[in-house]
């Protein structure tokens, strides 16, 4: 089977020849290819080069255009901080929608005009050209809560929930409309799977998640699936209290961080729901040994059951030893 066939088989409930392998790599991939992260995040050719290299080196079943959460916000004119060898990040003290009134006058960004969103679209196109036959090509968009936080400032958004619910809904609505178009551009460029990252959603707790976040995640995910590609929902952090809702989003793959035991996720979801993850990226993967990594993944697999894809809880950290990544790859290739 090719990597693409393997992932699709898993998603469609057919038996792959072995476990699919989909760890998130960004800085790790850049380092492996000798590419500074500033270049990785700003030039899709470097990103594609690094993704192709890391996938080939370890036999990943996919390549991804994920790089940092600031692409959309950058194009909208938000203050973004750049670092030489680290992902760019949004400067919250100068948030774009610092003043709520800004929202109503904000036109959604156009992913077809030159900018950081278009750079991702071009990254997807290049990856699809170079590897799309054999590997899944993953596009990436921000989820509603993460995108809202990027624009409003996370600290402020957290207070908005109680101060001004209708504003939060208007902001989430804007975020979803914009991400639908961003996803569409990536699908048209050849993405065969769409990642949705909604990191900030792990902070709000079950009440606010169910009331505000979940309905917008559902809408975004339904729209993307309507474009004919499956979705991978990734929420960093502790999602134990919202994991049930995550299972209701309709996302084909639920990608969990290490703080949520896969057994809990499995208990909260349909038996066929595909789970991805979720060893502790730093303590288990970077700082572990090939033996301990194999044991930790075996535990994940046992907890998740059959509908499982191998990965870490979040991004593979920079500095992860090659032999540790190899151990993860070996685990995937020798299990089913």
């Amino acid at each position: 089977m090719t990597g693409k066939e393997r992932i699709l088989a898993r998603i469609e409930g057919r038996a792959p020849d072995c476990l699919p392998l989909m760890p998130i790599t960004m800085m790790f991939a850049g380092d492996l290819a000798g590419i500074e992260y500033r270049g990785y995040a700003s030039d899709h050719r470097m990103l594609a080069e690094a993704q192709l290299r890391v996938a080939e080196r370890f036999g990943f079943d996919y390549v991804s255009a994920i790089s940092d959460p600031a692409r959309e916000a950058s194009d909208l004119g938000a203050a973004v901080e750049w670092f030489d060898n680290q992902p760019p990040a949004i400067n919250e003290s100068r948030a774009l929608i610092h003043d709520k009134g800004v929202l109503s006058g904000l036109a959604p960004p156009d992913p077809s005009v030159p900018g950081r969103m278009k750079d991702r679209v071009e990254g997807v196109r290049l990856l699809a050209e170079r590897a799309g036959k054999d590997l899944v090509v993953e596009g990436w968009v921000e989820g509603p809560c993460a995108m809202a936080a990027d624009l409003r400032g996370l600290n402020t958004l957290m207070l908005d929930f109680s101060d001004d619910g209708p504003f939060v809904e208007a902001l989430f609505d804007y975020a979803v409309r914009m991400e639908i178009e961003f996803a569409r551009a990536q699908v048209e460029a050849g993405a065969t799977l769409m990642g949705v990252g909604d990191a900030a959603a792990s902070l709000v707790g079950p009440r606010l998640y169910n009331q505000y976040v979940l309905p917008y995640e559902k809408r975004l995910i339904a729209e993307i699936r309507g474009m004919g590609v499956p979705v991978r929902l990734h929420i960093c952090g502790n999602t134990r209290r919202i994991v049930k809702g995550m299972g209701e989003t309709g996302s084909e793959i639920i990608d969990l961080d290490f703080l949520t035991p896969l057994a809990e996720a499995r208990a909260a979801m349909r038996p066929e729901q595909v789970l991805l993850g979720n060893i502790d990226p730093v303590r288990a993967l970077r700082d572990g040994t090939p033996e301990s990594i194999e044991a930790a993944l075996a535990e994940c697999h046992a907890q998740a059951g059959e509908a499982y894809i191998v990965g870490a809880g979040c991004e593979v950290p920079r500095g992860t030893p090659i032999e540790n990544m190899e151990a993860m790859a070996r685990f995937a290739r020798t299990r089913r």
């Binding site: 600290n155 957290m158 207070l159 902070l203 709000v204 707790g205 209290r241």
Partner: peptide, 11 residues
């Protein structure tokens, strides 16, 4: 003990 989350804390 996960009764409060970040929004409640910040409030």
């Amino acid at each position: 003990c996960e009764e409060y989350f970040v929004p409640e804390l910040l409030l």
